[in-house]
Nucleic acid binder design. Structure first.
Lengths: 156, 156
DNA sequence: CCATGATTTCCCATGATATCCCAACGTTGC
DNA sequence: GCAACGTTGGGATATCATGGGAAATCATGG
């Protein structure tokens, strides 16, 4: 369950020649509210995107690891994946972060990056790839609009 | 639950002709925050790797030993293994340590070493061996993606 | 107790990288 | 139009990883 404010909407910013991007101010606000001076990032398992979040999100990752018996195989698998492959990025005074090459490659980023809020975390996409993904998601969601109607006002 | 900052991400550094490696600055920061001027190391039980940590990690090892009745066999077994086979390495002014031959042999290190953060401690691997282990870990974690999906971004 | 060789520790130099700082510009709202 | 804010750009600065020589330390045998 998401407690504080959640990451919403999509923002697109440029990536400069040094590999820096401004994290949207709206997102930075939420991160600061979590008391995290840093941004935690990892390659998405399923999408050509970077999953990112603040201290709260990192805490859930940590809990997933610690929720298993330390001597179990599953604990180690989660640890190598969720801890060993998640990096901590720090902000410059202007609110930018420098994305490491591996993550840039995974998300196929070049000139710009789109930040899409997904509640407790957000993702960083190549803008065009995100557009395509959104169109697909919209269509799929609309086919299931019956699931939304009873709960969401004016749905579908 | 981990209290202070935890070891995250993976860094790969060279081993020079004198057997020295730079411990990643991010990791050294955490060690210093623990007030440990030294690095504690031991051969991993399950992997061809070196397990390492700071004062906090060493404290947990010590507690494992002291948690048993001093007259019990278990106490001695733990003591010989956890205390008797853990060594204390000191940093040179540039933040490097010299890995002893036994540990180098155990982890089959040669030109470079990868430091993978695992929360309260980290491991030192032969870079290629770690890559293989990570791929396996990712696959295993992904098969249990049901555990991840609701919480992590782009999970599984 | 000293001499010796081997090892370790320190110190400095060097690129490469990352970080900071300052400035400019477009938007938005007053 | 002006002020505040967020984004963008680029030069200056600091930090980090790395390599190698010099000095100090240690273990050993005489």
């Amino acid at each position: 369950m998401i407690v504080g404010r959640s990451f919403l909407a999509t923002f697109t910013n440029k990536i400069d020649s040094k590999g820096r991007v401004s994290v949207p101010a709206k997102f930075r606000e939420i991160l600061e509210a979590q008391g995290s001076r840093a941004l935690y990032c990892r390659a998405s398992f399923v999408a050509p995107a970077i999953a990112a979040g603040g201290a709260d999100w990192m805490a859930t990752l940590t809990q997933l690891v610690e929720g298993h018996d330390p001597s179990s195989e599953m604990h180690d698998d989660f640890a190598y994946t969720l801890l060993g492959e998640t990096i901590e990025l720090t902000f410059d005074p202007e609110g930018r972060v420098a994305l490491p090459d591996e993550l840039v490659a995974h998300a196929k980023l070049s000139e710009a990056a789109s930040f899409v809020g997904l509640g407790g975390y957000f993702e960083i996409w190549e803008p065009r790839a995100l557009e395509i993904r959104k169109i697909q998601a919209r269509r799929a969601a609309s086919e299931r609009r019956g699931l939304l109607r009873p709960k969401i006002g004016g749905a579908a």
